[in-house]
Nucleic acid binder design. Sequence first.
DNA 1: ATGAAAGCGCTAACAC
DNA 2: GTGTTAGCGCTTTCAT
Lengths: 326, 326
Amino acid sequence: MMTINDIAKLAGVAKSTVSRYLNGGSVSKKTKETLDRIIKETEYVPNTFAQSLKVKQSNLIGIIIPRLNSYATNEILQSVDRCLRERNYQLLIVNTDQDVDREVENLYALSRQKVAGIILLATAVTKAHKEAMDKIGIPVLLLGQRSDATYAIVHEEEEAGAAMGRHALKLGHKKILYLGVTEKDESVGVLRKKGVMDVLKNTVGIKVQEEEVDFNFDRTFQFLKEYLKGRDETYILCATDNIALAAYKASITLGRTVPEDVSISGFGGYSITDLVTPSITTVRYAYKEMGRIAAENLLRLLQGEEIPKKIALSGEFLPKESTKML
Amino acid sequence: MMTINDIAKLAGVAKSTVSRYLNGGSVSKKTKETLDRIIKETEYVPNTFAQSLKVKQSNLIGIIIPRLNSYATNEILQSVDRCLRERNYQLLIVNTDQDVDREVENLYALSRQKVAGIILLATAVTKAHKEAMDKIGIPVLLLGQRSDATYAIVHEEEEAGAAMGRHALKLGHKKILYLGVTEKDESVGVLRKKGVMDVLKNTVGIKVQEEEVDFNFDRTFQFLKEYLKGRDETYILCATDNIALAAYKASITLGRTVPEDVSISGFGGYSITDLVTPSITTVRYAYKEMGRIAAENLLRLLQGEEIPKKIALSGEFLPKESTKML
DNA sequence: ATGAAAGCGCTAACAC
DNA sequence: GTGTTAGCGCTTTCAT
């Protein structure tokens, strides 16, 4: 393995000159040429540890995600990764398996790894989160949840919810079942629902039944298989595509037809909503864009530039086969 | 930020003593106690760069994956990650977006990052791969493809293929369409198919039509929507679950019913095969176990232990609703 | 534009 | 069991 010293000797210059050359400092044309050649010949690559030890920072960006097997996560991950790689940064992915405590732990763990910045796909932002962000002194960019504690990029949840609510109304449904998630999840559990409910509840003659399920497909499916037996709503408005999928499967199991007997819709725009038949009405969120903006803005931040505290991304309402006029 | 020097001064010992303490060397009980206390009080954490710079190795394990949005990849990633974290190693995930050249590039890139070992989910093992593995001098563990170039953990592809072939026969099908993938992919393209074909071709009166499609859902679906118009096979034996899904969707689109008009099966055991209706007959591969073994064996290798050159994992044949007696 | 020299925080001989 | 010391490979003043 070549070191900067070896290169310096081969080139007949001091290692500081080589360092300057490597970091874009001014070197004479002649020096540059020799160095160009020698570095190519020797296939020299700088030792990242020595660099990082010196500058007390790495080219690593940490990203904390709740789970790996989620469409949303994957989309974001992919676009963040691509964007970062183009800028010569490396993504360090940390999966918390939906464990909120581990989100906080990993904030500290990543700071120990001296990542330059952190992207956090939080499910909630607790006091412990804020404390950690404060303490580590590394820029953190929040994705999917609002919080005044730091920079955040979110989806327009209320807007999306309202679009779906209007859709159900337009199709003439009067009996609607809303399958939501825990209100601890501010974005999905509170805002998305609020968007839906504001539209529905202000309309006379609409009955909305609410139920809370969780993000796990199997549990939700098992629950709905029983629960739906006693229900006669004609529209099941689900807070996520996965819930919609479970509701769909449960409905089928109970001998009902979608969308003839019951309309079903989700949120998220997961690709699977197109794979199933009937395809599922949903709102597609701008995951790819979210990832790209996150990466770009974080890097800007690292360069000392100003970036907006909060960015909200609009989704795209996509009516498909699973919802139908009553 | 505390350094080992600060701690040493506070404790009134030499920094080498602190270092020994940290690395499990022998220290007097008294020294240990003071150090325990001081380190807790100061929240001291060693600088990983300085450590790595010294020992010329990191606690990072690199994993190169073809894509992020794949069920198989996610399962493996999750279990590798979990296993590694328990052992205090960090996973560095590198996504190549199915670009074979980037697999090789990243072998080099990871070696520059001084990862301790590399897990490679290769789609193929080329000369360039072998050369890179040779050159970097870091243990590489191959997943999903056999190669005598290094250690490998694979699925029993032929066995799985044979099981599916026998299933189709047992159901009385005579006209079978096999939808495979490129033979560059030794595991899926060659072996899996061989398992199927060996069973089918040796049985008289069976006609097998072969066609090659790719891993992309949309392209495959578009292709099949046309292609299947002219076909009258009663069993479509697909090389992957995703292809099965595309075949299913294409069949539905052409007004055929699954499994009444045509039986369809896949390979992989993706969770989605259960989400759709009818659920899809498949072979579930042992992804989770593959990940765990990969992580454990790689760490063993790093400790200088011997590990088997090749491990083959059996899948589990899962008949479901999408295939039916003719 | 270039070089000498002083560390960054840590580990590992080696001597005591 | 503990301290001294010499680097690991690099960046960064500060002279020249």
